[in-house]
Nucleic acid binder design. Structure first.
Lengths: 230, 230
DNA sequence: TCAAAAGTGTTTCACTTACACCCATGA
DNA sequence: TCATGGGTGTAAGTGAAACACTTTTGA
């Protein structure tokens, strides 16, 4: 390890997913104000400051650029090929975040976020830099991870009717699920609890029981060697 | 994204695993020649040059410091907390590599590698910086990944007796496997082919058939929706 | 001929899948 | 009372796990 000077710069990016029953799975993008790629849509992010951790940098940039505070955040991948930014060498450490439905709704109201917008992951605009590739990596991670870790709950409100969970998984996995088998499986795990409330039906139909994810119980199950898989 | 000057530096690290029937699973470490942590053992790595990709940087550093060329390489995780290096802020993009048994044997002969050594992952020395944490992350990744991707073959020679594979998995998963069920399962996948040769028995015992991993066949199976899992 | 390792089939059990009818509510 | 979505049990099929004896070789 020699101590050479370097002009490589370090940035973080955040691919944040949200979910709404009617909009499906969406990702949070911002519209660039300056060149290069002026007016293009891009993944929110920015340079890391000297004395903050990578995760702090992500949360700070997200708040500044979109007004959003994520509920779940994990590192995704580091993109660092020369030439990914036409101006200079930039290493982008990308993170993967999830927000709850209620936060998702609030974006429209936020003043910081005039140039931030949710895009359904099936209807994406052209993206700046190599952000298309980064986003594809994030979507792949989301689709894989949701199958063996209960991160789906991070996209729903604290209390939700079972049908929301089913719709979310149908959207994420992009295939129909058998309602009976799906609920049998999820409920057999034992980390969902009924709140005792019923959902107010929107329009017609029988109201469903409301559920809550018990993270504490889930951790206990993990210790006992339990393995979650859809 | 503002264009602020930064003194954060960018390095890559490589956690390289090797396997030998009698030594078990080992990791490649180097002994530091200078302070800080002079004489401590550390994960090989170094700074990224302006015009090379991250992966090129990893391969270059590995070759310079240990003389090893890896057979399999994937990005692991990026460590970037302030304070992980006492001198300055360094972002370390760590990679995860595997070498074949034959390469593993050659380390002793390499002249570049006077201060490089294999350590059994159950008998690790104290490590410099936050390398203990990095190595723990790598071992966890290895243990998880070997269960759902056929990376085990990257640690064996091109041709190997079935018992080598079984011993490798026993070492990696750290539990006894049922020989009949294990071979039934692996062979049923259809990506192993017999070479027609027999292993020369070392000492006593019946010689075993030699096998080869057919990567092409494996890719075909993936396209057909096949899912590998131990 | 003995010790050591390789090779092989069948039964049992658990889990996954498929499938259809009744219930509660708003309009 | 009808349309809509919620809630539930059982049988069949499939894949995993358990299990012991025979074969080939070197000493």
């Amino acid at each position: 390890m020699q101590n050479s000077a370097s002009h490589i710069k370090v940035a973080v990016d955040a691919i944040v997913f949200g979910y709404a029953k009617n909009d499906g799975v969406s990702v949070l993008l911002i519209q660039r104000k300056y060149d290069p790629f002026k007016n293009s849509w891009a993944i929110p992010g920015g340079f890391v400051l000297e004395d903050e951790s990578l995760e702090e940098a992500v949360r700070r940039e997200l708040l500044e650029e979109t007004g959003i505070e994520v509920n779940y955040l994990e590192q995704l991948y580091t993109f660092g090929d020369p030439g990914r930014d036409p101006r200079q060498r930039i290493i982008a450490i990308s993170y993967f975040g999830l927000v709850k439905t209620s936060q998702y709704q609030e974006l429209k109201a936020s003043t910081d976020a005039e140039n931030a917008k949710w895009f359904n992951i099936k209807k994406l605009p052209a993206l700046a830099f190599d952000h298309k590739k980064i986003l594809a990596t994030a979507i792949e991670r989301l689709r894989n991870k949701v199958r063996y870790q209960p991160i789906g709950f991070e996209l729903l409100d604290k209390k939700f009717p079972f049908s929301d969970l089913e719709k979310l998984y149908t959207a994420l996995l992009d295939r129909e699920l058998n309602r009976r088998n799906f609920s049998k499986k999820i409920l057999s795990f034992g980390f969902l609890e009924e709140t005792g409330e019923l959902s107010r039906p929107e329009g017609k139909g029988r109201p469903g029981k409301m559920f809550r994810f018990n993270a504490h119980r889930y951790k206990e199950l993990l210790k006992e060697g339990f393995h979650f898989e859809i």
